[in-house]
Design a protein around this nucleic acid. Structure first.
Length: 448
RNA sequence: UCCUCGGUAGCUCAAUCGGCAGAGCAUCCGGCUGUUAACCGGACGGUUGUUAGUUCGAGUCUAACCCGAGGAGCCA
């Protein structure tokens, strides 16, 4: 085995050269003196053709003995052939030598349909399948794009604590832990700490896992998920929306250019993604309510569901059917801004001449993927913030430091959070977030 | 927490009115020089989620429970 070791992703650079591939047998089929091995190496999948006349007799015996998922070292000549299957495909290996490192036991996951329960129980093996491989590579690209855009636009990465002493937003259920005898909670947001950090660094972001012990069992929820939360000093609601649309457009466009083979494996309709370019449409909550109620009056169905759009009363938060309906009226992500103050968190800035709505904004992804960002202009006046804390019946002591931020050079500031898993599901065109993270933590399942 | 649906071979599924537990794939053996989830022949493979009940007889009917899926609420 002297030929240079190359990756399957780079095979096109080695046509007619002898190379070595290190990987695993993804699938096998044979026809007498021919054995076709689908070999995957983490960067892609290519076909290796073993012809009895081209290899030593013992190597041909190895090819016949190889089982699905056996680990292999394959040496051979790269051939360009447009019919060759694989990822990205188009090239195959005319094998000259073959070594099997570990013959796999019978492999439970076959290249065919399987049930969700079985696949989730075998998540540690399912990750090897091409669709899961593609999703995880797109996820990594999204994460890289997030960091690159923020790092290149003056944001400083300042991560926030995961162990926290109290709820940031009273409503959501938290995971409680024992902090040396004192109750503590796993963070569901880093936002309040972000607000401290902007006064030191101007523009910051935190990026890490967050935890929600909600009894939610839907295709959009995980108990542990990743969120990036940028926070910006001297930034109002309009400026926030401009940042969000630039940020999200960049992420989507970069996936299109860097993950073409992966999106092809996923059979994603990329024309829908190509339209995701700033600016995004913006609608006021008032107008969204009118759109929803007009649709409800017509008896219009929620796209993708057999049920009609339910009517909504001004002042109520949107349910999933409302979000899905609004998002479906646009072919780009759409901002819905100025939600009622009463349904949003205490720290959001009320509109100056209309305090029943606040300077908040959610970004709804098209194609039924729902809310992918939520953000707002934060309350910047100390006395107004104290009143809001009181109105929400929150204890003052844990928030004293948060109020302090408004006492020492307060500025208009805004921020948002973007859920990584929902973004991955949207860009990959998946129908469930459980496939967007290697080992999802769900309401009733945390193994493996 | 609530509503709906489901659980049969390693996997995907079938089994008529309550009447002998079946097929394809995987695995193993044999055959084939272009397969794309190959094909052909053979072999192996079962406490029908659990417990109790009805019945001459239960995969099938009843009850409770367990597990899974989808949805609602809540949320990113």
């Amino acid at each position: 085995m002297q030929a240079p070791i190359v990756t399957i992703r780079a095979l096109h650079e080695h046509v007619d050269q002898e190379v070595t591939i290190q990987g695993w047998c993804y699938a096998k089929t044979g026809k007498g003196k021919l054995v076709f091995l689908q070999v995957r190496d983490g960067t892609g999948v290519c076909q290796a053709v073993v012809f009895r006349g081209n290899v030593a007799e013992e190597d041909f015996d190895i090819a016949k003995a190889v089982t699905q998922e056996s680990s292999l070292i394959v040496r051979g000549i790269v051939k360009a052939d447009p019919r060759a299957p694989g990822i990205p495909g188009g090239y195959e290996i005319d094998v000259r030598g073959l070594e099997a490192l570990g013959i796999s036991d019978p492999y439970p996951i076959q290249p065919k349909e399987h049930g969700v329960e079985f696949l989730m129980q075998n998540r540690h093996l399912w990750l090897r399948s091409s669709r899961q491989w593609a999703v995880m590579r797109v996820r990594a690209t999204i994460v890289r794009s997030i960091r690159d855009w923020l790092d290149n636009h003056g944001f400083l990465n300042v991560d926030t604590p995961i162990i926290t002493p109290a709820a940031a937003e009273g409503t959501t259920t938290l995971f409680e832990i024992d902090y040396h005898g004192e109750p503590a909670y796993l963070a569901q947001t880093g936002q309040l700490y972000n607000e401290a950090n902007i006064f030191a660094f101007g523009k910051v972001y935190c990026f890490g896992p967050t935890f929600r012990a909600e009894k939610s069992k839907t295709r959009r929820h995980l108990q542990e998920f990743w969120m990036v939360e940028p926070e910006i000093a001297f930034c109002d609601l309009d400026q926030l929306m401009e940042i969000e649309e630039q940020f999200v457009s960049y992420i989507v466009q970069r996936c299109l250019t860097e993950c073409a083979p992966e999106l092809k494996v996923l059979e994603r309709d990329t024309t829908a993604l190509q339209r995701v370019i700033a600016p995004f449409p913006r609608i006021h909550y008032d107008d969204a309510v009118e759109m929803i109620n007009a649709a409800a009056a017509r008896g219009e169905l929620v796209p993708g569901y057999p049920d009609p759009v339910p009517a909504i009363e001004w002042g109520d938060d949107f349910g999933s059917p409302h979000e899905t309906y609004i998002a479906a009226q646009f072919d780009k992500p759409v901002f819905v801004h100025h939600y009622p103050t009463q349904v949003k968190a205490f720290y959001m800035e009320p509109e100056a001449n209309r305090p029943e709505v606040c300077r908040s904004v959610d970004l709804l992804a098209p194609e039924g993927y729902g809310e992918i960002t939520g953000g707002s202009e934060r309350m910047s006046d100390a006395s107004k913030l104290l009143a809001a804390i009181e109105r929400h019946h929150l204890p003052l002591e844990p928030y004293q430091w948060y109020v302090d931020l408004r006492r020492y050079g307060s500025v208009v500031h805004s921020g948002f959070g973007l859920g990584v898993e929902r973004t991955v599901a949207w860009i990959c065109g998946l129908d469930h977030v459980r496939e967007t993270i290697a080992f999802p933590r769900m309401l009733t399942t945390m193994r493996p």
